[in-house]
């Protein structure tokens, strides 16, 4: 049984006949102890899809799914209270902006023990002990003296460590990290990634790593999901995705990284931008930007094809040499 199973997840915003689909028929699963990387550019729906798993989509957004199961329990069918008990304790989430994700009015201790108070029993003394333990686990030096600090007294890296401590407070089975290092400096970023991977290994959690940084995912993830304009366009084991991409978008994304153009004069840029709410093309969503688009791509939308974990949404998936199959 998968830890998390998502099938045909759709999130729509707006009303009327033509709502905007931020997430469009997304399906994937996360196993215990697995690191899944979700990559995509802004507007690809990678954050919205994970927010919808956490039940954090606010009113005008509508979440629909064929299956949205955590350890076999249907998250959409269960009561609001039960779902809240699961999200937060069993599924935890870390956000991009550590500075604004912590409430500036309360101390670090108060904020971490809040989750403990809600989801676990134990008295005040136990909670304090547990907070110290957690701070120590996330590598905050001298945790006891940090209990009474306020978020503004912490640096970005420290705040993100506190956020991670909050997230793992109830020993979650699945941790969703939404751009956990984007707002941090390079050397601090490396520290936080190390910390996340260490914790993941120690606790054998499932980790969903959402980021736009392909290289980061290449180094950390076991399995990768590439999203474009709300759809999953390619999934597969990390090394396969990065060495032999099958979807033209994945290929273009990889090629546009400076690292892929070492020694070249110019970068291989993908022309155009991700379509927004009002300019979604007909047919394959990538067709206006795709160098291999055919007439069929302009009319029909391809579906996911392929076996097992290696799937691609393209009529003419790329072969080993990076050329479209006929």
């Amino acid at each position: 049984m998968s830890l998390l199973e998502v099938n045909n997840l759709t999130v729509e915003f707006g009303d009327g006949d033509n709502p905007f689909r931020a997430v469009d028929q997304v399906g994937y699963s996360v196993e215990k102890g697995e690191i899944v990387g979700i990559v995509g550019e802004s507007g690809s729906g990678k954050s919205v899809s994970s927010l919808s798993i956490m039940g954090l989509i606010e009113y005008p957004g509508k979440v629909k799914a064929d299956t949205l199961k955590f350890e076999g329990q249907d998250l959409l069918a269960m009561s609001e209270n039960k779902r809240r008990a699961i999200t937060g304790a069993e599924i935890a989430m870390i956000f991009q902006e550590p500075m604004s994700s912590l409430n500036p009015c309360y101390t670090v201790e108060y904020q971490i023990s809040e989750a403990l108070k809600i989801h676990q029993s134990g008295d005040k003394k136990w909670r304090r002990q547990r907070v110290i333990e957690l701070l120590d686990q996330v590598g905050i030096p001298d945790p006891e003296s940090r209990l009474k600090t306020y978020p503004h007294q912490l640096s970005g890296g420290m705040s993100q460590r506190v956020m991670i401590a909050m997230a793992i407070a109830c020993d979650p089975k699945l941790l969703i990290a939404d751009e956990p290092t984007t707002a941090l400096d390079v050397t601090i970023q490396a520290q936080i990634v190390d910390l996340l991977l260490d914790l993941q290994k120690q606790k054998n959690m499932g980790l969903v790593l959402i980021t736009h940084d392909l290289a980061l995912v290449a180094e950390a993830a076991h399995r990768v999901i590439v999203m474009y304009a709300g759809q999953v366009v390619e999934t597969g084991p990390a090394e396969q995705i990065f060495s032999k991409p099958k979807h033209p978008y994945t290929q273009a994304l990889l090629r546009s990284l400076p690292e892929s153009s070492l020694g070249k004069d110019r970068l291989d840029a993908l022309p155009g931008v991700v379509p927004g709410a009002f300019d979604r093309p007909i047919g394959c969503l990538l067709n206006p930007r795709c160098p291999y688009a055919t007439e069929r791509c302009q009319k029909e939308q391809p579906t996911m094809q392929g076996e097992g974990v290696r799937q691609v949404r393209c009529f003419t998936p790329l072969d080993e040499a990076g050329r479209p199959s006929a």
Partner: peptide, 8 residues
């Protein structure tokens, strides 16, 4: 900027 736009 996004990766693909960054290259542009």
């Amino acid at each position: 900027l996004d990766v693909s736009v960054q290259a542009q």
